[in-house]
Computed example of a mutant assay.
Amino acid sequence: MAKALRQGLNERGIALTHSDCLELVARQFGFQDWNILAARISDGGTPQVALRLPEGWIAGGSKPEHYEMGVDSGMPGSPALIRCKYEADDPAYLSAEKGFGTLMQSVAAAGYLGKRLRLNAELRTEEVSGAGTIWMRIDRAPGQTARFDNMESRSDQGVLAGTTGWTPRQIVLDVPDDAESIHFGFYLRGTGRTWLRNVTLVEVGEDVAATGGGGAYLAGPTNLDFSRLSPGSR
């Protein structure tokens, strides 16, 4: 990595020594210097970039202690990352109560009342056993959900699992006139790693269909003849 970094910088007219590049590689992995990273590698450990929470974002979820969340400075563009601390077959995880970890924001709804909002983002997953997804919720008051969508119930353009490349996803919700707060982010359910980048929250017109209804309820009667099966059903 240090050799590739040095070569790339030299091609751009930036001259650094090999030692300088080793130090930069160590910092990308979240270590203070190359000596510490080299010792970690010689011990057989797998170096991982230390994650730091981005400003304005909150780590949460039903089981946040199972996950590490923050900015992945070791990946181009420094996207946000949620990674499970356990492998899928880890006895400690298999015996634990399952849940999810989320990285999210909460904003006041005052500037968006009566508008239709679209949350756009790109997701990438690696060895996800459950689901990686974006989500958005609009509350009238704490505990009073007006609109919600986490893509879990979609038959297409829904949650991601396994290993995938960067994949665009979007959620569109109406903000009621009496809404108080808007909450959005992404989460990882199960094991593996999920990245997020290119997040935008923009107003759209009535020509863009909403994707979520009120709370945990459907927007209206659907699939009354049982012709469509839920994702993963047999």
Rank of each mutant, 00 (worst) to 15 (best):
L51Q: 05
D72P: 03
Q32G: 04
L5G: 05
T133R: 11
F186A: 08
V49N: 08
E180L: 11
A2P: 00
G130N: 06
S78Q: 14
S73P: 00
G192C: 05
T222C: 12
A161E: 08
F226L: 12
I182T: 02
H18S: 12
G220C: 01
D178K: 03
L229C: 05
L160R: 00
R147W: 03
F184L: 06
L224G: 08
P168G: 13
E203R: 07
F148K: 06
A161F: 04
L188C: 08
I14Q: 12
A109W: 13
H183D: 11
Y67G: 08
G192F: 05
I138G: 02
Y93T: 14
P76F: 04
G70R: 12
L51T: 01
R169W: 04
L103D: 11
E127A: 11
D72Y: 03
M104Y: 13
M75I: 07
T167D: 09
Y86R: 08
M75G: 00
K85I: 11
D33H: 13
R169C: 14
W166D: 05
F31I: 05
R118A: 02
S73G: 11
P47I: 06
D43C: 09
P76A: 07
R140Q: 11
T145I: 15
R197G: 06
Y187I: 02
G70F: 11
M1P: 15
G205D: 01
D156Y: 13
G74W: 07
W57F: 06
P54V: 09
G132D: 00
E152S: 15
N10V: 15
A219E: 05
A131Q: 10
G101P: 03
W57V: 01
K63P: 03
G60Q: 02
G143P: 03
L123S: 08
M151R: 09
P79T: 08
A179M: 06
N35M: 10
Q144L: 10
S153N: 09
A80I: 09
R189E: 10
H18K: 12
G114H: 06
E11F: 08
R27K: 15
F184W: 12
G8V: 04
L224M: 14
K63T: 13
Y217H: 05
S106P: 00
Q144W: 06
R116I: 07
G60P: 00
M104P: 00
L201D: 07
I138L: 01
D139S: 12
D225Q: 13
I36W: 00
F186E: 03
W34L: 04
H66F: 10
R83I: 09
A216V: 02
R118P: 00
R118Q: 14
Y187R: 15
Y217R: 01
N35I: 05
L24M: 15
W34I: 04
H18E: 11
I82D: 10
G70D: 10
S181F: 01
P91M: 12
T46V: 15
G114T: 09
P176V: 01
W135Q: 01
A2L: 00
G130A: 02
